[in-house]
Computed example of a mutant assay.
Amino acid sequence: MDIKITSLSGGDAGSVTLADEIFGLEPREDILQRVVRWQLAKRQQGTHQSLGRAEIARTGAKLYKQKGTGRARHGSARAPQFRGGGKAHGPVSRSHAHDLPKKLRALGLKHALSAKAKAGGLIVVDDLASNDGKTKAIATQFAGLGWTNALIIGGSELDVNFSRSARNLPNIDVLPIQGINVYDILRRQTLVLSKAAVEALEERFK
């Protein structure tokens, strides 16, 4: 599929042919859902922790004698039914990550790219660079291009002035090609790829 290349100033910079095996697939929601679930589970901290009865700092003495009181036979004040006791079956620190085959992860990225291309939310620019590194100037350029909610992917090395000036803008994410992922593609309305990013993707999936 052919798509025109634009510049940050809004001018025409030619066209590029995108590989159909990367940008022309019929998107499958089940694959996208599995990859997004894998990503979110992997980044979940899992630091939730409550104290069980074995971790409570409390006396271990028997509360009262075993027989003759007419009450239940308790042996520890650390039991969950007492105020100040341990929590029964509470959360513990653990990893929420689960495995996902590498081929499925790669396929998920292809389907995410194809979904953006099919929805008309894919834009290719010739270069991502800023002369002065001013956020106000970049914000004006983005507003003129209609990039109010966008993920911008550059080459392996981002222009320092461009990344600095764009990182404070709301709903704008700027990543190198190494950081491209399914979740960030889907959560933003527009996907902006530089020519270097397109070449890197085609080389990666060649």
Rank of each mutant, 00 (worst) to 15 (best):
Ala117Thr: 14
Arg71Pro: 08
Ser130Met: 09
Pro27Gln: 15
Leu107Ile: 06
Gly70Lys: 11
Ala54Leu: 09
Leu51Asn: 07
His96Asn: 10
Glu21Gly: 05
Leu113Pro: 03
Gly133Val: 02
Glu55Gln: 10
Thr59Glu: 12
Phe82Arg: 02
Gly70His: 09
Ala61Met: 10
Pro101Ser: 06
Ser93Asp: 08
His96Lys: 10
Ala117Ser: 10
Leu122Gly: 03
Lys103Val: 04
Ile22Thr: 05
His74Phe: 01
Leu107His: 12
Ala19Lys: 06
Gly46Pro: 08
Lys103Trp: 00
Gln33Gly: 01
Ala129Cys: 00
Asp132Cys: 03
Gly68Lys: 04
Arg105Met: 07
Lys116Ile: 13
Asp20Gln: 09
Arg94Cys: 02
Val92Thr: 12
Lys110Pro: 05
Gly24Thr: 14
Glu26Ala: 05
Ala72Lys: 01
Asp132His: 07
Leu32Asn: 12
Pro27Met: 15
Leu104Asn: 03
Gly68Cys: 05
Asp30Val: 09
Gly75Ala: 07
Gly121Lys: 15
Lys102Gly: 02
Arg58Tyr: 06
Lys67Val: 04
Lys110Tyr: 10
Lys110Val: 05
Ile31Gln: 09
Ala77His: 07
His74Tyr: 07
Asp127Met: 10
Ser130Arg: 06
Lys134Val: 13
Leu113Gly: 08
Gln49Trp: 12
Gly52Val: 07
Gln44Lys: 15
Thr47Ala: 05
Ile123Leu: 11
Ala72Leu: 04
Gln81Ile: 01
Leu104Arg: 02
Gly121Ser: 13
Lys102Val: 11
Arg34Met: 14
Gln81Asp: 01
Pro101Leu: 06
Phe82Met: 05
Ile31Lys: 09
Asp30Tyr: 13
Gly46Arg: 15
Gly133Asp: 10
Arg28Gln: 10
Gly68Trp: 13
Val92Phe: 10
Gly84Cys: 04
Gly121Glu: 09
Lys103Ser: 15
Leu32Ala: 02
Thr69Lys: 03
Ile31Ser: 02
Ile56Cys: 03
Asn131His: 11
Glu29Asp: 07
Ala88Gln: 07
Ala88Pro: 00
Gln33Thr: 15
Lys42Ala: 06
Leu107Cys: 00
Gln81Val: 01
Ala137Gln: 09
Arg28Met: 13
Ala61Trp: 10
Leu122Lys: 03
Gly121Cys: 06
Val35Glu: 15
Gly85Ala: 03
Leu107Gly: 00
Pro91Ser: 13
Arg94Trp: 02
Ala77Cys: 02
Ala41Asp: 12
Leu25His: 00
